[in-house]
C-alpha cells in the first residue's frame, strides 16, 4: 500500500516538474524523451538487480545501481535534447534550477526503483531460505521421533523372545500364551505408528498388555495398581506413557530382586490430564544422575509436541520415584 502511495506521489511530482519548463514545445519534447529514457533505465535496473551478487549488502548495491543509472539517464536525456533540438540545448543547460530538479528527480526515481527491486529480490531469497529451514526442521523432527520410537522397542522384544524360548522348553502352553500377548502388543504398536493422538482407554489397554508380558517375564515380583482413569475421556500422544512405565519397571523391578509395586493414577482437571506413576527405588543403589534414556526421550517428545518444558516432573525421595506427566487436552 505504502509503495503505491509513494509511486503515485512520485508520478505526480514527475509530471509536475515539467511544468516548470515554460516553452510548450520543449515541455512536450522533454516529457516524452525523459519518460523514454527513464523507462529503458527501469528495465536495466531490474536486470542489474536480478543479477545481484549476494556478497554485498542489498541496500548498498541498490543505491549504487540507482546512482549509476541516474547518471546514465541524465546523460542520455541531455544527449537527446542536444541531438534533436541543438538550438535549445544551450538554453536548457543554463537553466540551472530546472537541470538540478531534473537530475534530482532522476536520482529519486532510479534509486527508489532499485531499492524496490532489491527488496523484492531479497524477500524472495528469504522466503526460499525459510521454506528450506522449515523443511529441515520437519525432517529432523520426524527423524528424531522415529529414532525415539525405535529405541523403545528392541530390548523388550529380544528379552520377551528369550522368555518364549525358555517357556517352550519347560511350559509350552504358557509359551503360546506369551506369544499371543506379544502379538497383541506388537499389533497395537504397529497400528499406533500412524496415530499421533490416542484415547487414554486405548493407551491403558496397551500398557496393560505390556505389563502382562512383563509379568510373565518376572513372575509374581511385579504388581501394578491402577487408580482412576477407566472412565476418563481424554487423549494422549502415542509413546509418552510407555517410556515412563518402562522407566518405572527398570528402576523398580530391575533394581531389586524383591517384589515390586508400581502405582499408576490418572485424573482430568481443567483440560489437563495428569498421570502419576510411582515405583519403589533405592537411592543408595542408583548412581547419582542418569534418569536413563526413557525419561529424557519423553521430555523431549513432550517439548516437540507442545513446545513446553514443564509437562513432566520427577520426584525422588528415599523409597519412591514418582513421575508426573501433564497432557494438555484440546490444543
Amino acid at each position: 500500500m505504502a509503495a503505491f502511495i509513494a509511486l503515485a506521489a512520485l508520478t505526480t511530482l514527475y509530471t509536475l516538474h515539467f511544468l516548470l519548463l515554460t516553452n510548450a514545445r520543449m515541455l512536450t519534447y522533454c516529457a516524452v524523451a525523459d519518460t523514454l529514457v527513464i523507462g529503458i533505465n527501469m528495465w536495466c535496473i531490474a536486470l542489474a538487480i536480478k543479477a545481484y551478487p549476494t556478497t554485498v549488502s542489498v541496500l548498498l548495491y541498490a543505491l549504487a545501481v540507482g546512482t549509476v543509472f541516474t547518471g546514465i539517464a541524465s546523460f542520455l536525456f541531455y544527449r537527446c535534447i542536444k541531438l534533436s533540438l541543438p538550438d535549445f540545448a544551450g538554453a536548457f543547460i543554463t537553466a540551472k534550477p530546472i537541470w538540478i530538479l531534473l537530475f534530482g528527480m532522476h536520482m529519486i526515481i532510479c534509486n527508489w526503483m532499485a531499492i524496490q527491486f532489491a527488496l523484492f529480490k531479497k524477500n524472495e531469497l528469504l522466503e526460499k531460505k525459510l521454506a528450506r529451514q522449515v523443511d529441515i526442521d520437519n525432517s529432523l523432527r520426524d527423524a528424531e521421533l522415529f529414532k525415539l520410537r525405535q529405541q523403545l522397542q528392541p530390548h523388550f522384544l529380544y528379552n520377551s523372545l528369550n522368555s518364549i524360548a525358555a517357556l517352550i522348553a519347560i511350559q509350552p502352553e504358557r509359551a503360546q500364551d506369551m506369544i499371543g500377548k506379544l502379538s497383541d502388543f506388537l499389533r497395537s504398536s504397529v497400528k499406533r505408528e500412524s496415530e499421533e493422538l490416542l484415547q487414554i482407554k486405548e493407551e491403558l489397554q496397551y500398557i496393560k498388555t505390556y505389563l502382562a508380558i512383563e509379568t510373565i517375564r518376572f513372575g509374581d515380583r511385579l504388581n501394578v495398581q491402577f487408580a482412576g482413569g477407566t472412565d476418563i475421556n481424554a487423549t494422549i500422544p502415542s509413546f509418552i506413557l510407555q517410556p515412563v512405565l518402562e522407566n518405572a519397571i527398570k528402576f523398580g523391578l530391575y533394581g531389586t530382586t524383591e517384589q515390586v509395586s508400581i502405582r499408576f493414577s490418572l485424573s482430568l482437571d481443567n483440560n489437563m490430564l495428569t498421570i502419576t506413576v510411582s515405583n519403589p527405588y533405592d537411592p543408595s543403589i542408583q548412581g547419582g544422575k542418569g534418569t536413563g534414556f526413557g525419561l529424557e526421550g519423553t521430555r523431549r517428545r513432550l517439548y516437540l509436541l507442545y513446545g513446553r518444558t514443564d509437562l513432566m516432573e520427577t520426584i525422588k525421595d528415599q523409597q519412591q520415584f514418582t513421575t508426573i506427566l501433564k497432557i494438555p487436552q484440546h490444543v
Binding site: 528379552n159 528369550n162 522368555s163 524360548a165 525358555a166 517357556l167 522348553a169 519347560i170 510373565i216 517375564r217 518376572f218 513372575g219 530391575y254 530382586t257
Partner: peptide, 30 residues
C-alpha cells in the same frame, strides 16, 4: 535376573553332563 532365562540355560546345559550348575543368582551381589 530373569528366572526364565536361567531355566533356558539349564535346559541347554542338560546336554553337557560334565558341567554342573552349582548355583543360580538373580543379581550381581548374589
Amino acid at each position: 535376573d530373569e528366572q526364565l532365562s536361567r531355566e533356558l540355560l539349564k535346559n541347554y546345559l542338560a546336554a553337557y553332563p560334565q558341567l554342573s550348575v552349582v548355583a543360580e543368582c538373580a543379581d550381581g551381589f548374589a
